[in-house]
């Protein structure tokens, strides 16, 4: 699988490097849906998918040397980049919202009461913590999670794609998930700080 895909990624990369705009269109047609779905999964905001897709493909096109086909598939690289940018997008939105509500509070000198945190909101916040932590995982673990979680690969396929033993793939997935689970168990302040 890796062998049949690698030349294709290398070819797309080569065309991107040499300024062939048809390679950008091809990459978008193949991976645009993936990038948008990842953005939606993290942000739950349909409009964010446009922003994230725009950023991800602008990065691929204007800085093609940041992707090295010898170090992994374009699919996984774009998946990780889309995820990272999606987490950043939500964090930036949060900052804007906080700044806006602070302005509002100062203007009206009335503390914003806001609704009590219902379960869905708490879940969303915890989800964001997890996605932040996922974006911070060491590369080998992050690659494995992206292949299993976003690409729907079995641990055997993960091992084949990354060229590692199956036992190593299992360990990486388990270590990664344990790390994410620990993020939730930590006091919210520390977890938020690290995730931010």
């Amino acid at each position: 699988m890796e062998n049949s895909r690698a030349p294709t990624d290398a070819e797309v990369h080569r065309r991107l490097v040499y300024g062939d705009e048809s390679a950008l269109a091809a990459a978008y047609d193949i991976y645009g849906g993936l990038v948008r779905r990842i953005a939606l999964r993290v942000t739950h905001v349909p409009g964010a998918a446009d922003d994230v897709a725009q950023e991800v493909f602008a990065h691929l096109w204007s800085r093609p040397y940041t992707y090295d086909p010898q170090r992994g598939t374009l699919r996984t690289w774009l998946s990780m980049l889309a995820h990272r940018r999606s987490v950043d997008w939500v964090r930036a939105e949060e900052r804007h919202r906080k700044a806006a509500s602070a302005d509002e509070a100062a203007l009206h000198a009335i503390p914003a009461p806001g609704p009590g945190p219902d379960e869905a909101v708490v879940d969303m916040e915890r989800a964001l913590l997890l996605h932040s932590a996922l974006a911070e995982l060491p590369l080998p673990q992050r690659q494995a999670v992206h292949l299993a979680y976003f690409a729907g690969h079995s641990y055997r396929q993960v091992a084949a794609e990354l060229g590692i033993p199956e036992g190593t793939a299992k360990t990486r997935l388990r270590t990664a998930l344990r790390r994410l689970a620990e993020t939730l168990a930590e006091p919210p302040d520390t977890a938020a700080e690290r995730g931010a």
């Binding site: 999964r41 915890r126 996605h131 689970a181 939730l184």
Partner: peptide, 20 residues
């Protein structure tokens, strides 16, 4: 933990992001 990664939305659970 994975359920929360899905945003806690049971409809999203295990929906594969990368359908291709």
């Amino acid at each position: 933990t994975v359920r929360l990664l899905d945003g806690g939305d049971p409809l999203l659970a295990y929906e594969r992001i990368d359908r291709a």
